[in-house]
């Protein structure tokens, strides 16, 4: 008997695949030619890299206490912006969620407004706030507030809208006021997903508050910028290691809180 070759993928999907790959490659080539990267310069500099990396293979333990104190600054900034952001975002998203909003116009206004706020990166907010309030922790707080509220309003509104109309209609038929529908009906329903979003945002806030140091707000990011600016290789490496391990711990903690809450072990 003759062995037959069985096609696993149909002819049509093979052609589709080839077309898709050609399209993707051409997008890549167009992008690569548009941005005209200076590859020669890059390869010329590549020769210096081993030297730099070699000098970075050092740790300066004397910076650790200062770095930890600054880390607490970054953490406090992130926490402050988170708490205030959560409070404001919660009020705003109950006004914006389409199933409970007191006014449809208000709902679309809040949603549109925060879509714009959200699309401005936090470091750009940082630059604008620093220009008006000067360097310092207050500026960092305000800058992070914008991106935190922007993010939380979107996520909270989504969770509230997922709760649907059932509870709201049932409560409204008993004559409950807007506030008691929100407080006794929707809040208990949504609180778990709220907390999940808050943990995600807390991680984001911390990485933002560290990043904001680069443009001059306080915290460990500023310390790193200073170390980089003075070509202090050992300090740079030490601070980066501290940042990375701290972020790993935070990621681990937040994942644990999230899974504990969503899997309901009370």
């Amino acid at each position: 008997m003759e062995m037959n070759y069985i096609r696993v993928t149909s002819k049509g999907s093979v052609w589709k695949m080839i077309l898709l790959i050609i399209a993707l490659i051409s997008i890549f080539v167009i992008a690569a030619t548009l941005i005209n990267l200076n590859l020669e310069q890059f390869f010329a500099r590549l020769e210096n890299v081993p030297g730099v990396l070699n000098s970075m293979m050092a740790i300066d333990a004397s910076i650790i206490p200062a770095a930890l104190l600054e880390l607490v600054t970054s953490l406090s900034l992130a926490f402050l912006a988170l708490v205030v952001g959560v409070c404001l975002a919660m009020i705003l998203s109950f006004l914006a969620a389409s199933n409970i909003t007191p006014n449809n116009f208000l709902s679309s206004f809040i949603k549109g407004f925060f879509a714009i706020i959200r699309s401005i990166p936090s470091l750009v907010w940082g630059l604008m706030v620093i220009a008006s309030l000067g360097f310092g922790n207050t500026s960092g707080f305000i800058a992070m507030l914008f991106s935190a509220i922007g993010y939380l309003v979107k996520m909270f509104t989504g969770s509230i809208e997922d709760a649907g109309y059932d509870v709201i209609e049932a409560m409204r038929s008993t004559g409950a006021s807007w506030f008691s529908i929100v407080y006794h009906g929707l809040l208990p329903l949504c609180i778990t997903s709220f907390v999940a979003w808050i943990t995600v945002r807390f991680e984001g806030n911390i990485s933002e508050s560290i990043s904001l140091g680069i443009i001059g707000v306080g915290g460990i990011g500023l310390l790193l910028t200073q170390a980089i600016g003075t070509y202090n290789y050992a300090q740079t490496t030490t601070i980066v290691i501290i940042i990375c391990s701290f972020m790993l711990i935070i990621e681990f903690l937040m994942t644990r809180i999230k899974s504990k809450i969503t899997h309901g072990s009370r």
């Binding site: 941005i35 933002e208 680069i214 940042i243």
Partner: peptide, 21 residues
């Protein structure tokens, strides 16, 4: 993933110098 991308940027600028790459 855990080092913020701005820090990566600052570090790489430090190693490679300014530029799109």
């Amino acid at each position: 993933r855990n080092i913020p991308f701005v820090i990566w940027g600052a570090l790489l600028v430090y190693i490679f110098g300014l530029g799109g790459i």
